[in-house]
């Protein structure tokens, strides 16, 4: 599977410092494992409407330090399990950032776009041209590092590592 480089979707917008404890509560982390089990709990303690209303391709937009706190990977995979296409934020916690790309969920750092986008907007994230297009305008972000692009194009960290092991 090769991940798409052009994502288009409807926006769910949140604020600064949204922690993994509200993205995917710690009390589920050792018992729920499959995508079907984790999907209904996405953003449970932040926005109960999210898991009910999210549609494949939707994009999460947030302020600073999205995903701070725990290393729990389900904070990223619970969004993937709901078909979220990308997360655009002013900044990310480093572990969420890695967990997201490792699961082919583009995590795009673009403070200008994050500030300009309104809830319910339909936006486009173009990973090749490094652009976020939204009703308020086009905003550019720095090019992906070669390491992230390799992982994305391999279909995620595990297939990427499998390929390297196979030599």
């Amino acid at each position: 599977m090769t991940a798409a480089h052009l994502l288009r979707g409807r926006v769910w917008k949140y604020g600064d410092s949204v922690s993994t404890d509200v993205i995917f509560p710690g009390k589920y982390t050792y018992t729920l494992r499959t995508p079907e089990e984790i999907a209904p709990h996405a953003l449970e303690d932040l926005d109960p409407e999210f898991a009910r209303g999210v549609r494949p391709g939707d994009i999460v937009v947030a302020g600073r330090n999205w995903g701070c706190g725990s290393s729990r990977e389900q904070a990223a995979t619970c969004l993937v399990a709901n078909g979220v296409g990308a997360v655009v934020a002013a900044s990310f916690s480093r572990i969420f950032f890695r967990n997201a790309w490792n699961n082919c969920l583009p995590a795009v750092t673009c403070p200008a776009a994050a500030a300009a986008i309104e809830p319910g907007d339909v936006i486009e994230v173009d990973l090749d041209r490094c652009l976020v297009r939204c009703p308020a305008g086009d905003f550019s972000f720095p090019p992906l590092s070669p390491a992230l692009r390799e992982i994305l194009d391999a279909g995620g960290l595990i297939p990427w590592a499998q390929r390297r092991l196979a030599g």
């Binding site: 706190g69 725990s70 290393s71 729990r72 990977e73 990223a76 572990i95 890695r98 967990n99 490792n102 699961n103 995620g156 960290l157 595990i158 590592a161 390297r164 092991l165």
Partner: peptide, 29 residues
């Protein structure tokens, strides 16, 4: 695979938290 792995800085070691997939890669490679 725990976000408080920087704890080991107390002894002058480099400690970083990683995700579950990343730990699987460490085990494998």
């Amino acid at each position: 695979s725990d976000s408080h792995t920087p704890h080991f800085g107390w002894m002058g070691a480099f400690g970083a938290g990683i995700g579950r997939s990343e730990m699987a890669v460490v085990w494998a490679t």
